[in-house]
Amino acid sequence: MRTMRRTVLLLGLAVTGCAPDLRTDYPFDGQVNTGPLVEVSPQEDGSSVTLIDATNKSSLVFFDIDEGRELKADEAFDTNAWDLAFQRYTVTMNGGGGNPTGTVRVAVLKDASWDALTSAPAEGYQQDASEPVFSGVEGGWYSYDLVKHRLVPRDELLYVVQSSAGQFFKLRMLSYYDSAGTPARLSFRYQPLPAPSVLTAALPAP
């Protein structure tokens, strides 16, 4: 059963939409980072800023947003407690195409203020399908500068994640590059939200 579940999960995560080829920006040399793949920095306002090292093209970084930590692959498969997975610029969720047995859902809010969003919306939640929600809904979480060959997060998009534990978090992508300019070291900000008083069913997958 575990082998079958792992096969389905990996097949689902392999399905991604069109995205720019960033090899000219940062040619991967096969080296694997031996340091932490997830670094979470709590902020004074109750939010957290997370840095994900997704530079390895051949592996996924699993993140448990409820506990604010990385889950290694074996733990992610065994517990099914991961919420988001990162591989270069691709972000998938533990639900739908990312994993049919997962319950994570995500709502995408356009032009929503971070400070004004004080509780989770009651509707608009989706799961991944042939294309991840983070890549396909409202044009995806990034735009691509064809002149500078750089990926730029879209500040107007705010995500609300309903986690594998049923909790809610608002999330905004901050950068595809770290402070040294290294690509595929993504950062995002997230913060818990109160649940809506009434929660509607998920929308059809995109």
Rank of each mutant, 00 (worst) to 15 (best):
T90P: 00
T90H: 01
Q127H: 02
G98N: 03
E39H: 09
I52W: 01
L84T: 11
F169D: 12
Y176A: 13
D78A: 13
A81M: 10
G136T: 14
L51W: 15
T118N: 10
D155F: 12
V104Y: 00
Y159E: 04
V38G: 01
F168T: 12
Q162N: 14
L37M: 07
V161Y: 01
P132Q: 10
T101N: 14
S163N: 05
Y159N: 08
S59C: 08
T118M: 06
S41W: 01
S58N: 15
Y176D: 13
L157R: 05
L84Q: 03
P42E: 08
Y142Q: 04
F169V: 07
L109G: 03
L146F: 13
N99R: 06
T101D: 13
P100E: 10
L84D: 05
E70R: 02
M173F: 06
R150I: 00
V49H: 10
S130A: 09
V91F: 00
G46V: 00
Y142I: 04
V106L: 04
F168C: 10
S48C: 14
L60G: 03
Q126K: 13
G102V: 00
D155N: 14
F63G: 05
V147D: 12
G166L: 05
K110V: 10
G102R: 01
S119E: 11
R69P: 07
A54R: 08
V152L: 15
A112W: 03
Y125A: 07
V160M: 08
F86E: 04
H149W: 04
G140R: 08
I65E: 03
G102M: 02
D66W: 06
Q167S: 13
V106A: 08
S48Y: 02
A76V: 08
T55D: 15
D115Q: 08
M173P: 01
L84M: 14
P121R: 05
T101L: 11
G97E: 02
E156G: 09
P153I: 04
E156R: 13
S59R: 08
L60I: 03
E123G: 09
A165W: 01
